[in-house]
Design a binder for these strands. Structure first.
Lengths: 116, 116
DNA sequence: CGGAATCCCCGACGATACTG
DNA sequence: CAGTATCGTCGGGGATTCCG
């Protein structure tokens, strides 16, 4: 901290956290990782999410170029969402997180209790 | 989504996000990465944080075995906080995030505007 | 010095209903 | 189908004050 180097790195970490944080973003990206999906497809896949929230999350992901929204030219009622190249580039990052996450779970479970 | 594999991975990602997410956790870990610190040292280093919040964050990090709290035996008023081995193991993960964070910043800046 | 206690604000997210 | 509108809840985190 204090020095510019660390501050800049913190900012970068914050950015990534914003992009995959919150209750839904990671799940949405995971769902779209398989294949492109329609709005209601996504909604069903995610389960509990409300349309309002799904819309907001998708808009945010669009702004960050992780997801691309496409309206079918002939039929405006068909909208598909898919990952962009940039979105796919998140994959190895996620993989790293998953790996450490598993390690972390072990660590926390085997030393004692976790509480929650 | 839907399949157990992906659900489990999402859970792992959630865990990591909980551990380094929020407004302060990453900054605290970054600060302790340099060297062990006392409570008020940490507080000054972080700047705006209130003691209440710092306490809560440290407790959480302790619970997760990322930080170790030690009271000096002779003088109970001296308390030091330091990263555990497990805490240090987060370093490469952070590095990955920083790397993608920089890429992301470029991506978002150069295609158009970011808005926020 | 290293916190604990109390009070409060605000943004994320949910529920429900409605629309082009 | 793919959203929008309105309202309500809940918890993270800040401000301030007090304590051993």
């Amino acid at each position: 901290m204090k020095n510019k180097q660390k501050q800049s790195q913190l900012r970068d970490v914050r950015d990534v956290l914003d992009v995959i944080g919150g209750r839904w973003k990671a799940a949405i990206l995971a769902s779209l990782c398989d294949s492109e999906k329609r709005f209601n497809e996504l909604k069903n896949d995610l389960g509990e999410i409300t349309p309002r929230t799904l819309t907001k999350e998708l808009r945010y992901l669009e702004l960050n170029h992780l997801v691309q929204r496409t309206t079918a030219p002939n039929n405006a009622v068909a909208v598909i969402y898919q990952l962009t190249e940039h979105g796919h580039s998140l994959n190895p990052v996620i993989a790293t997180l998953v790996k450490w996450g598993k390690k972390h779970r072990k660590e926390v479970l085997n030393i004692g209790n976790v509480g929650e």
